[in-house]
Design a protein around this nucleic acid. Sequence first.
DNA 1: AAAAAAACATGATATTAATCATATAAAGGA
DNA 2: TCCTTTATATGATTAATATCATGTTTTTTT
Lengths: 150, 150
Amino acid sequence: MKFYTNKMLSNSSKYALKAVMYLALHTEENNKMMVKDISERINVPKAYIAKLLQELAKRKIISSAKGPKGGFYSSPSNKNRTIMEVIEVIDGKKKMESCVLGLEDCNEQHPCPIHSLIGPLKSKMIDLLDSKTINDLAQDLALNKVFLPI
Amino acid sequence: MKFYTNKMLSNSSKYALKAVMYLALHTEENNKMMVKDISERINVPKAYIAKLLQELAKRKIISSAKGPKGGFYSSPSNKNRTIMEVIEVIDGKKKMESCVLGLEDCNEQHPCPIHSLIGPLKSKMIDLLDSKTINDLAQDLALNKVFLPI
DNA sequence: AAAAAAACATGATATTAATCATATAAAGGA
DNA sequence: TCCTTTATATGATTAATATCATGTTTTTTT
């Protein structure tokens, strides 16, 4: 058995986050980018990222325009969506919320051992992802505080 | 799309942890338990948990004995293994360690936005899982500080 | 209008993880 | 020693996720 990737997020939501970040940094309403180019820049297969971009656009995490000169872009209001919203659009809600052991009857008042151990940290993670907007991270990137090593 | 379980751990390692905890609480060398009974108690399909128990026994996370009066049990030295070791036996190493976005070139010195955001909390989680032994959690269970709502 | 360029919608295939099944080997009791 | 009991080894099947492919619709340009 060999696993080398962290599974807190699905591949799909990882790709989605990369694309969303990339668009937030490099596009705007009069500077759109086509699937083909996005795919190359963020290094994700075209057909795969296309599907995700469509879903993200439908849910207003990014914007899109059809036809010549069309493409995807990130509007100011798009950038106000949170990181958790990006994840939820792709992976669905509750994914990160349930008990780490998947136990139905585990909760704060009646916690399983693992819950008691890492529950508080998990809550903090969720709070962070809930409070940070795409724009927040884009700013960090613009200031070279972090990088997008695609 | 619908996902209701937290995927930080695979189903397999969740089941393994349940079994390990159960055995730590309810068995010892002269009080073994058969697959069939373990399966019923922790509510995991027999054939599935059997395979996991075999792997755990091979890697000395639990103990086993064949033949009549045989079964699985948890010895004192088994109980000194850490929670992370249980996870690693089943899910493989590094699973929890890599970048949340799965980016090759992301690290402490050159972090991606998400890494920078939740990396410290993830490190704390890993430290906890590394430092807690099966015995530690079994004690918490014995003292009714936590529960095993199987 | 008509043609071309793009996203949109839908579904097919491939890969991986989860689940199940069974034949083999070891241990203990008659 | 032989039969029963139990874990062990191995592999088959099913389900979920990831990946790819293609026809349809909308928009712009000529």
